[in-house]
């Protein structure tokens, strides 16, 4: 556990500032050729990373016969949206709505509870707070498989099965350990004097939390929120366990079952479904990539 703590502490404050080692100013004519292998390596790296996405995107416009008869590098003959229309006709829009209904309330609760708990565990002084923090940490290590069966029984007995609640409750509980841990780390970097000063000024501790603590860790909350969003939006295991009907399926479960609906694979619609599925996270990454990289690496304990 100690190593994880220090690793996170060392990743977080440095962040991803684009620094590096200043280049040695030695320039020779051979330099171009000396760097050639590196250039080729980088070119291959970029192709490997980008081409599959490009191929998927182009494929989402192709017809079934283009897939079966043309080579894979052929461009689509027309830019028709038929495949996308078919994807949404088959109920994919409903899966997206389900995911939104489940993920955003879960996210709000995780952040609200997690930030408050992180504050209580790090800023406030009381006996046993170390033990409680360790208790939360244990939740990061334990595989989700450990809690699925009892939860299945609990939700069944309490009649929650068949609603959105099993997903929301499980998401909140599994999201809390990492959030509490990360928030405690962020609060640790806030000088204690700030809270002592606000206390001396007569603020109650709840007011210090709300008016002083929260604004100070605003960026951290945003980062943790981003990280948790990716975990929840991309979750398959919990969604697969607790969605017992097509009406409840989230976007990931819907995509997993998408190909199963047809005898033969319908290439165009499958590619369009993948494109729709990927679009949300990809756009988010396009605009917020620095925060996403910082957050996900800081949250790497989750594995």
């Amino acid at each position: 556990m100690t190593t994880q703590t220090t690793a996170i502490a060392s990743v977080h404050p440095r962040g991803l500032t684009s620094g590096g080692v200043p280049r040695s100013r030695r320039s020779t004519p051979r330099r171009f050729f000396a760097r050639l292998p590196i250039r080729i390596l980088i070119a291959v790296l970029l192709i490997v990373e980008i081409y599959p996405m490009l191929w998927m995107f182009l494929g989402s416009f192709k017809t079934q016969s283009e897939f079966l008869n043309d080579p894979f590098w052929a461009l689509p003959k027309t830019w028709s949206l038929d495949n996308y229309v078919e994807v949404f006709d088959s109920g994919f829009g409903h899966y997206i709505v389900n995911s939104i209904i489940v993920v955003f309330p879960s996210l709000a609760l995780i952040l609200l509870f997690g930030v408050a708990a992180g504050f209580a565990l790090e800023v406030m002084v009381w006996k046993g707070r170390g033990t409680v923090l360790l208790l939360f940490l244990a939740g990061i290590m334990v595989p989700t498989q450990m809690i699925l069966l009892p939860l299945f029984t609990i939700y069944f007995r309490t009649g929650l099965t068949g609603t959105y609640w099993p997903l929301i409750l499980t998401y909140v509980a599994t999201g809390l350990p990492l959030t509490v841990f990360m928030m405690a780390t962020f609060f640790r970097s806030v000088p204690r004097e700030i809270f002592e000063a606000s206390t001396l000024d007569g603020a109650s501790i709840l007011r210090s939390f709300w008016a002083v603590g929260l604004p100070l860790v605003r960026n951290a909350i945003f980062t943790v929120g981003l990280v948790q969003f990716f975990f929840l939006w991309n979750d398959l295991l919990i969604a697969l366990t607790f969605t017992n009907s097509d009406a409840l399926r989230t976007i990931q479960v819907g995509l997993l079952n998408f190909t199963g609906q047809y005898g033969a694979v319908q290439y165009g619609p499958t590619f369009a479904a993948i494109a729709v599925n990927v679009l949300g996270t990809l756009l988010l990454y396009l605009f917020l990539n620095q925060q996403v990289m910082k957050g996900l690496t800081a949250g790497s304990v989750k594995g």
């Binding site: 408050a116 708990a117 209580a120 499980t170 909140v172 509980a173």
Partner: peptide, 18 residues
């Protein structure tokens, strides 16, 4: 007030099931 909700949900949905 601050720790209660988190600890409650975490205990009921993680610790007890474990």
């Amino acid at each position: 007030v601050l720790l209660g909700p988190a600890l409650l949900v975490y205990s009921l949905v993680m610790l007890v099931p474990i």
